[in-house]
Write a protein that binds this DNA or RNA. Structure first.
Lengths: 185, 185
DNA sequence: GTCGACATGTAACCAGTTACATGATTAA
DNA sequence: TTAATCATGTAACTGGTTACATGTCGAC
């Protein structure tokens, strides 16, 4: 693997390490409450990426003995690693975003579905989106205005905007379907 | 591969075939102007999925000789195929959606970026989102109110909602960044 | 003693992408 | 003759997921 052509997840891990030394376990937790909304590597992938970072000289590993908990290995980003990260951040050729939504796919074929099943799926989407919006709203209250979290907050805003848009949209669709049923009745 | 555990793309192709007989090439075009926003298989995958559908008995293949164009193979969904599709549509256990946005990832680490580079990336997002919103808006004018396109229209609305939300969000972030610069100046 | 949090990995798999390959027909 | 559209695939690869495996420590 060419140093200039690494998967995005490599840089995601590297970037998280700029917030401080972390173990694979720490990173896994960190992902959930930070970049998880738009980038969520599997646990096993985090561990293998960490090995890669060490191989590349982008991070150093250190074993930490603990008495109250199992031992762990923490990783610290190196100068070389930071350089690589900055180069990636400034590269204009970004991997393009990907969005896959099997529920929209089902809705597209909605004419083949029972209205009840369809409505249930839409209620599901709506509930999930509303739940996510609530969660993110809570995080927002914690980090809004904190200068050190300015950029993370900007990405949180994206998540909130999408979650709210999704919830509103699902409502809209449910209303449209309801109106159609009235007409055909 | 178990019949009850096929990849979503298999059903995506199957679903498109409910709109009429199509060749791999037709499907490829169809995807672009329909489900492409939330499900976009590669061309090569479409062809291999078609083979799978035939193997499973979910579609039948027919060679069509053409004089003005290269010959082609068109595919028609079978009764068995429609049954499998309906079963999938009504299954409550949906594969969950996936969203990957490397640009949000970069923004999360924005404190390591030059403001100009960051602004350029955000302008890029904004431009793309606005462009998509315009495109989808045009399609909307064509299918809005057409009863046969009701469900596709509902999914289009989702695309529009997200594209608009993204454009607004990008503007918001650019404004926030601008304000911060004023303060620190 | 058992549950939950902490902690680190391996192995197998495959969906999906990218690059490559080929060729017909039409229109500019 | 060049480009665009139509048309169908193969081969190689890999990023990422899922399931499995193993264990420590503290609290209840």
């Amino acid at each position: 693997m060419d140093e200039r052509n690494l998967p995005t997840t490599t840089f995601a891990i590297l970037g998280m390490l700029t917030f401080g030394e972390m173990s694979g376990y720490d990173l896994s937790k960190f992902v959930e409450k930070s970049i998880g909304y738009f980038w969520s590597p599997a646990k096993s992938q985090i561990y293998s990426e960490l090995r890669r970072l060490v191989d590349l000289g982008f991070a150093v590993e250190q074993e930490v003995r603990q008495e109250d908990r199992p031992d762990k290995r923490v990783y610290r980003i190196t100068g070389e690693g930071e350089e690589a990260l900055r180069a990636w951040l400034h590269d204009q050729e970004v991997e393009q975003e990907s969005y896959k939504n099997p529920l929209l796919l089902k809705l597209f074929f909605g004419r083949l579905m029972d209205h009840d099943a369809l409505r249930a799926q839409l209620e599901g989407i709506k509930g999930q989106a509303a739940g996510l919006a609530r969660e993110l709203g809570e995080v927002e209250r914690q980090i809004k205005g904190e200068e050190e979290f300015f950029y993370p907050y900007m990405t949180l805003k994206a998540g909130l905007a999408h979650a709210r848009a999704t919830a509103r949209w699902a409502d809209d669709v449910l209303r449209h379907i309801g109106e159609r049923e009235e007409v055909s009745r």
